[in-house]
Design a binder for these strands. Structure first.
Lengths: 140, 140
DNA sequence: GTGGATGCAAACGCTTTGCAGGTTT
DNA sequence: AAACCTGCAAAGCGTTTGCATCCAC
């Protein structure tokens, strides 16, 4: 399986036109294994267990690289720092106005998304990102 | 009119339980006169023209105070800094994925908002904040 | 008079950058 | 060999904080 994983990461890098490095591969695997919207520091902490000498700067550089090259998607942030979207399915976010917790909600479950691709003013729609602001069950 | 403005600001402060100060009043008026999603620095630059000695810290403190006490609403940010929502009507945002420009779009024009107030998992909806990601006319 | 507000400067957290040395292509 | 990547340390930016002074209530 290591061979398989290594191979697909190679392919992924090839597809996105970026070089394969050990740090990059471990970073990628660690991020894949995280859910939600991890912060760079959280990612760094985990990667450090596998590569103790890795630098935080490298983590930042590669998170950006992954986002820019389309490997991961950056999410619009309610956190104060850069976050990456680890849920690859179409979904939106419920943001608790009290405790600030963010929970994913599937596009189906939310059930309000339009199919329009062009808006007044000529704006061309790529996708909708909905934040539902409200109270989570715990805070009600 | 100065009297009127002064009076309504007094009332506003009373309603929100905050003290009336000169800096606070000028800050409020300046912010009212700005549209879109001004940054603290932008606000600071304008206020400084009227009160040259004002401190940036004071601007930050009062923006937070205004947001916390409900005078203004903080918007979820695509900018890298704190932004305040100056458009008081129900609306959403169109974010250009290329040039990052943010344009408001009225709730009516967007036409996709649900009336549901409770979501799966028991989340209690206060409001929806929709970001439409896409290309603005200039970037298409 | 007392609690809160201001201004200043220093501190802060997160992120980026410059650079020397090492790795990938 | 050329281009790129890494790690380190320093710098950068936006924001917050501590504190002495000052103002609103």
């Amino acid at each position: 399986m290591q061979v398989t994983a290594a191979k697909s990461f190679r392919d992924l890098c090839a597809e996105h036109g970026i070089a394969v490095t050990h740090q990059r591969q471990v970073l990628y695997e660690v991020m894949q294994g995280m859910s939600g919207h991890p912060s760079p520091e959280e990612v760094y902490a985990r990667v450090k267990k596998k590569i103790p000498a890795i630098s935080l700067a490298t983590v930042y550089k590669n998170i950006h690289l992954f986002v820019e090259s389309g490997v991961f998607r950056k999410m619009s942030m309610h956190h104060g720092s850069v976050r990456v979207e680890m849920n690859s399915e179409a979904h939106h976010h419920m943001v608790c106005s009290k405790c600030k917790a963010i929970t994913d909600i599937g596009e189906q479950e939310l059930g309000l998304v339009s199919k329009r691709t062009r808006l007044p003013g000529g704006f061309l729609v790529e996708r909708y990102a909905v934040d539902v602001i409200g109270l989570c069950p715990k805070c009600q």
